[in-house]
Amino acid sequence: MKSAITENKNNQQKIHDLLDKYFEGKTTVAEEQTLRSYFQQTEIEPELKEYASLFAAWNSLYLHGEYLPEEPNIFIQMHSVPQKRLSWLRIGTTTAVAIAAVILFFFIQINPKKPTDFVVIDGVSYTDKAHLNKALETSLHNVRIDIKDVLDELQNVYAEE
């Protein structure tokens, strides 16, 4: 009785090991046959029942000749290769986006758009300092006199703050 239980446990362990190999795409044709046979039986370990439908479908493909036994685990390969490519594509895209984001962010930080100095008088543009300074003085002068009272009042407000 004890040896039967031990044998059963060994079988279960073997199936677990084969499943691991299967999902890694490393099983041989014979090992896959073992798995198919296991999942065709009625007494399946409860935690492995979720794989029963997968192997039932796989068995069906095998019976209809859509599975190629000479290529070990080709059914899994057919599906796993695009997934691997997809993974690399995702990693590549993520890396590229991350790099672009970092570069763009620092570029914006380091090179904020700086306004250039110029003055336009009656539609004519000047960039020399004489024109610039004159326009600056005129601008400040124009608001200087009239706004003085307001600013004096403001100074009191800020003094209170």
């Binding site: 100095d117 336009v120 009656d122 326009a135 601008s139």
Partner: peptide
Amino acid sequence: YGSQQGVTMLEASEELMKNYQIIHFKSII
């Protein structure tokens, strides 16, 4: 209105205004 007749528009950056601690100055008269 910046480029119209009878109008003076000034755009100045930090370089011209550094003595005033101003980084951007715009005026239109």
